[in-house]
Design a binder for these strands. Structure first.
Lengths: 340, 340
DNA sequence: CTGTTAGCGCATTCAA
DNA sequence: TTGAATGCGCTAACAG
C-alpha cells in the first residue's frame, strides 16, 4: 500500500513472489509452463504491488502494440461533426476493446496532421488501421503501403488506384433505388433528383440507384448536382427546380441535409410537403426526426458500419487472409415518416 | 529504395552516414553538439533509408510518450453524438498536434472500458490527460491519482471530492443570466424556466443564472425540472406548463434540444413563437439554425473549449504549476435569431 | 564534437 | 517447470 512514486516493474513482482522475473513474464502472457503454486504467488504479488505492465516496453519486446488506430480523414473539420462518424467510432471502440485492443482516434484534416499520422504509421505504432474517409483524396491510403499491417476502409471506391484495401460500405445504390421505387409505387412518378457532390463515391452510387429505379423515366434535366452535402445546397436545388416545380410530385435527395434544404425552400415558395411534392432523404441522421415534417429517408446504421469494419479487421489480425478488393456492402432500410 | 521489410533502425542510418548511432540520436533530438557536416550526412541517410524512429523504443528510453489522451466519459454512448464534444476534440487535436503531441481519443462508456483506460493510465501511456466528462460520475477522475501526469477537466464541479484538477468550463451562470435579462429588457417579464437534469453541474449553474436575472420575480412554480437534455423533455415541459401558458410570454430553456421540444409542443397547442411566447435555448448547437423559427440562444464555443483545455495542459507539461482548483471560465455570447 | 556504454521494462530464447 | 541471458530500438551520461 505504500504508494511510492517509483514505478513497480516486473522484477519487483518477481521478488515479491519469490520467483524469477522470467516466470512472471510467462504468467502475464498466459504461458502454460507456470506451476499452480507460482501462479498464485505471482497473482498475489501483482495485487499487492499494484503492478501494471509497461506499455512501451511490451510493445518494443513484442513488436506489437495492442492498439488499433481509427483514422478519420476529413476535408473540413466540420464534416467530422456528422453523427455517423461518431457512431461508427464509438461502436468500433467497443468491439475492438472487447477483443483486447485499445482503439485510438486520429484526425487527418490538414497536410500537417496527415504527415504526422504518416510518421506514426510508418513507425508501426498500431497493429491495424481503420480508415474512415469522407473524402475521395487517397493520399492517406497511400501511407499504409509502408506498413505491413491490416487496413480496412470505410468506403468502396470505384477508382482504380494503386492502393487498395478491403472495404465495408453501405449498399448506396440499392438504398436509393428502393426509396425511389417506394415513391413510384405510391404514384409519385414525376420525380427530380438532387445529387451529392462529385468527389464522393457515394454520390455516384446513389445517382445510379435513382436511375435504375426510374428506368426510361429518367431525365437528366431533372437532376441537380450539388457542390456539397449541406442544407444550403438543398435550398439552391429547390430554387433551381422552380420552373418545373408545378410538374413535379416528388424530389429524391442524396442525403438528409439536402432534403431539409429542399423542404425549407419549397415551403417558402408555397408548396406543401408531402401533399404537393414528396421529399426523401438519405442517412437517417438525427435531424431527420427533428424536422416538421419528419423525414422519410433511407437509414444507414452507422453503428453497424463501425462494427463490421472492426470485425473484418479483427479477422485479418487473426491471420485470415482477406483480398485487398473485398467489399462488404451493408444493407440499408427505408424509414417511412411524414415527408413522403 | 530497396523496400526491404526489415525495419530500418538508427544503426542503419548511422552506418549509412558513417557516424556512430549516438550521434544520430543526438541529431534526432535536436542536440546542438552535432557538426554541420555530420548533420548533413545524417539527414541524407535518413532520407535515403526512409528511416522513422520507433515509437515504443523512444518512449521506453525517454520515459515519455509524446501523446496526450483525450478521454470522453459518457453515461450513454449517444451523448457522444453531440457536436460540442467532437468540436472540442478536433480543436484539441489541432493544438496538441502543433505542439508536437499526438492526441488519442478514448471513450469511457462502461465499466469495462473504464477499467481498460485505468490500466492504460496506470501504465503511464500518455504524458497528459484531457478528461472530457459529460457525467457527474467521478470514478474516472479517480484513476488519475496514480498517474503523476497533468490532467485538465472540462467541467467545473461544485462538489468537493477527494480528487481535483484544474478545469476549463463555460460561464454557465453568466450566460443564462444574460439571455434572461435580454428577454426582460425586451418586455418579456412573465418567464418560466426549463432546468436541465440534476446530475449535471451545468444545470444548477444555469438555473442559478436565471434566478439571478429574475430576482424577486423568480417563482419556483414556474420551473420545470427535466430528467435529461433531450427534445422530449422540452415537449413534456411545455405540456406541464399548459395551465399557466396564457400567463407567460417567455420560456427560458437550459439547452437547445429542450427549447426545440418546447417550441414543437407550443405549436401543437396553438401558440406562436415568438409572438405569443418567446423561447430561448443554450449551446448554439447545429440544430439551432435548422429549426423554424431559428433559435435565439446562448453560444458556447466548443472549439475554444478544446483549445483552452489543450493550452492549459501544454503549459502544465512545460512545467508551469497550476493549482488543482484553478478554474477557467469561458465567456458565452447571446445569438439573436427568431425564437425570441 | 563524437564514439562508447549502460540501461528503459519486458518477451523469449536457451539451459538447467 | 524455471532461471539466466540476450535483444527489441533508442536515449543519455560518460569519456575522449
Amino acid at each position: 500500500m505504500t504508494a511510492t512514486k517509483n514505478k513497480v516493474t516486473i522484477r519487483d513482482v518477481a521478488r515479491l513472489a519469490g520467483v524469477s522475473y522470467g516466470t512472471v513474464s510467462r504468467y502475464l502472457n498466459g504461458n502454460e509452463h507456470v506451476s499452480e503454486r507460482a501462479a498464485q504467488r505471482i497473482a498475489q504479488a501483482i495485487e499487492e504491488s499494484q503492478y501494471t505492465p509497461n506499455n512501451a516496453a511490451r510493445s518494443l519486446a513484442q513488436q506489437r502494440t495492442s492498439t488499433i488506430a481509427f483514422i478519420v480523414q476529413v476535408e473540413s473539420i466540420f464534416t467530422l461533426l456528422q453523427a455517423s462518424t461518431t457512431a461508427a467510432m464509438a461502436e468500433a471502440n467497443q468491439i475492438l476493446g472487447d477483443a483486447g485492443y485499445q482503439m485510438v482516434t486520429l484526425i487527418a484534416n490538414s497536410d500537417d496532421s496527415t504527415h504526422r499520422i504518416a510518421q506514426l504509421v510508418h513507425s508501426d505504432f498500431a497493429d491495424g488501421y481503420l480508415l474512415f474517409s469522407l473524402s475521395e483524396d487517397d493520399s492517406l491510403a497511400k501511407i499504409f503501403r509502408t506498413a505491413h499491417r491490416p487496413v480496412v476502409l470505410s468506403e468502396a471506391s470505384d477508382r482504380s488506384t494503386d492502393v487498395s484495401y478491403p472495404a465495408v460500405d453501405f449498399a448506396n445504390a440499392d438504398g436509393q433505388r428502393d426509396i425511389t421505387r417506394f415513391l413510384l409505387d405510391r404514384g409519385k412518378t414525376r420525380l427530380a433528383y438532387v445529387c451529392g457532390p462529385g468527389y464522393s463515391p457515394s454520390s455516384s452510387k446513389r445517382l445510379q440507384g435513382f436511375k435504375q429505379a426510374m428506368g426510361s423515366r429518367y431525365d437528366d434535366n431533372r437532376v441537380y448536382y450539388a457542390d456539397d452535402w449541406e442544407i444550403t445546397s438543398g435550398e439552391m436545388a429547390a430554387a433551381a427546380f422552380e420552373p418545373i416545380l408545378h410538374d413535379l410530385d416528388g424530389i429524391v435527395c442524396a442525403n438528409d441535409n439536402i432534403a431539409i434544404g429542399v423542404i425549407n425552400q419549397l415551403h417558402r415558395m408555397g408548396y406543401r410537403v408531402p401533399e404537393d411534392i414528396a421529399v426523401t432523404g438519405f442517412d437517417d441522421s438525427p435531424i431527420a426526426t427533428m424536422m416538421d415534417p419528419k423525414l422519410t429517408t433511407v437509414r444507414q446504421d452507422s453503428w453497424m458500419h463501425g462494427r463490421a469494419m472492426s470485425q473484418l479487421l479483427l479477422s485479418m489480425l487473426r491471420g485470415e487472409t482477406v483480398g485487398p478488393h473485398t467489399v462488404t456492402l451493408l444493407p440499408t432500410e427505408i424509414v417511412t415518416r411524414q415527408s413522403a
